[in-house]
Design a binder for these strands. Sequence first.
DNA 1: ATAATTGCAAACTCTTTGCAACGCC
DNA 2: GGCGTTGCAAAGAGTTTGCAATTAT
Lengths: 132, 132
Amino acid sequence: MSELNNHSLRITKQRQIILDELCSVTSHPTADVLYQMVRKRLPKISLGTVYRNLEIMSECGIIQKLDIGGTQKRFDGSAHVHYHVRCNQCGRVDDLDLPPDFNVEKAAGKLTSFKILRHRLEFTGTCPECQS
Amino acid sequence: MSELNNHSLRITKQRQIILDELCSVTSHPTADVLYQMVRKRLPKISLGTVYRNLEIMSECGIIQKLDIGGTQKRFDGSAHVHYHVRCNQCGRVDDLDLPPDFNVEKAAGKLTSFKILRHRLEFTGTCPECQS
DNA sequence: ATAATTGCAAACTCTTTGCAACGCC
DNA sequence: GGCGTTGCAAAGAGTTTGCAATTAT
């Protein structure tokens, strides 16, 4: 799948608007939420197109696909490495800008015969709205 | 090894054998792999029963449901907090017994208005078999 | 006795895919 | 014009659920 990098990605209005909408937002929307957002500007777009483009853009490293707890994948318009908090009640996902700890990858590397490539740290908590 | 007693949970042979098989293994099987394992001892068991019991037992804290990358959930017969490495090529998941770092939860708590409850640290790497 | 649990199959949710028409380069 | 991309709908994968029969306590 990494040969997608060699494909010339065309700039279609669908792709542009999906990326626009995703980047316009600090939440980490699921594909269907993003689909609803995009439909306000492109009423005829299909959900399949949204999925296809999110897949392609995350493979190209333009965006991130998040595989956080919960049944649906979420998408992040920012490609830089950072951590996340997920609300155990409503599922909301926020960024958590703790500095990425790459030393922990070295420590892990000493405990396993896996060749460590990256790590993911996720917090579960209760968001302010759900605390009341 | 975990016990089923203590809850209002009945000890059925299905439940007992599912737990037995899960605990007999250091891998982190998906529901369908575990189903195949259990079927060798209980050929008439249904996949739904396996799913139902894994759900119930993880809710009771007897086992853990892992929501690691990949399309299927995985299950861990051990309920103690620990980290995991997942192979980016074959999907195999191993334990990684780095001591859980609860200080990171305190640090995170200072950066967010979420009330932090727990954290999850997962590594991605290439397993020995896939390195060749 | 009675309430939890089971097997079965159908339903459900999320995501992917085949295909003919379309549109960017 | 060529070929990547789209909309549509159907298929796929994984999991959950309704129900009547069964079983643990």
